[in-house]
Amino acid sequence: MRINAEQIAYDIRDLNRSPEQRLLANLYLLDLDEYEVEPLAVHWEALCALGIAFQADRVQVTINVYSQNLEAAILYVLDLNSRIPFNSPEHATNTFVRALREGW
């Protein structure tokens, strides 16, 4: 087994980053500060379990434009899923984008 010093250094730096910093690094179109994506970082695992396609450009652009609605949209989608589970990841993604746009 060969040791890759660059990968080890990257992994150590990654361990020292906050969840918000890791999230921003993965979502390249987000143009928000760490405190603005905090609600997303807190609920990241639950939202990913629903299948929301955060890699989609339209999702990231919508988060940028409607960042003031981010926490409300997240809580709405999680609450809705607990009452009526989404039947597909596309449905969850579309509901999340609509909740962001309309400030649910």
Rank of each mutant, 00 (worst) to 15 (best):
D57Q: 06
F86E: 14
P85Q: 08
I52L: 03
V59N: 04
P85A: 11
P85D: 12
N87R: 15
A53K: 09
T95H: 02
A92C: 07
A53M: 05
R83Y: 10
E90G: 00
V61H: 11
L70D: 07
H91V: 14
N69G: 02
T62R: 04
Q60F: 05
E71L: 12
L78N: 06
Q60C: 09
E90D: 12
I84F: 07
D57W: 01
N81V: 06
T93Y: 00
V59A: 07
T62H: 02
N94D: 12
H91K: 13
Q60N: 10
H91P: 00
A56K: 00
R83D: 11
N69L: 02
V97F: 03
V97P: 01
I63R: 13
N94Q: 12
I52C: 01
L75I: 10
Y66H: 15
V65W: 07
R58C: 04
T62D: 05
F54A: 10
V77F: 09
V77D: 10
S88K: 13
L80T: 13
E71P: 09
I63V: 15
I74F: 11
E90W: 02
Y66S: 12
T95S: 10
I74P: 09
R58I: 00
R83H: 13
F54Y: 13
E71D: 15
R58G: 02
I52H: 02
Q55I: 09
Q55C: 09
T93R: 00
E90C: 03
Q60L: 10
R58M: 05
Q55Y: 11
Y66V: 01
V65H: 15
R58H: 12
V61N: 08
N94I: 07
S88M: 14
T62K: 05
I52R: 01
L70R: 05
S67I: 08
V77L: 06
A73N: 04
S82E: 15
V97S: 07
I63C: 09
A72L: 04
I63Q: 13
Y76V: 03
Y76C: 05
Q55A: 14
N64C: 05
I74A: 11
A73L: 04
V65D: 11
N64D: 10
N64S: 10
D57K: 09
V59T: 11
A72S: 11
Y66E: 08
N94F: 01
Q60V: 08
A53C: 02
L75E: 11
I84N: 06
A73S: 06
S82K: 12
T62F: 02
F96D: 04
I52M: 03
S88V: 15
L78F: 08
F96K: 05
T95R: 06
S82V: 09
A73F: 03
P89C: 05
T95L: 03
V77C: 12
I63P: 09
I52A: 00
V61T: 12
T95K: 01
V61P: 03
Y76M: 07
V65L: 14
A72I: 01
P89E: 09
I74N: 13
T62G: 03
E71G: 10
N64I: 01
Y66G: 03
N69Q: 00
E90T: 13
V97Q: 04
L78A: 08
Y76H: 15
S82M: 10
N94S: 11
E90V: 13
I52E: 01
L80K: 15
Q55E: 15
I52V: 07
V65F: 06
D79A: 09
L80M: 08
A73H: 02
N64R: 05
F54W: 14
T93N: 01
Y66Q: 14
D57S: 07
A73K: 04
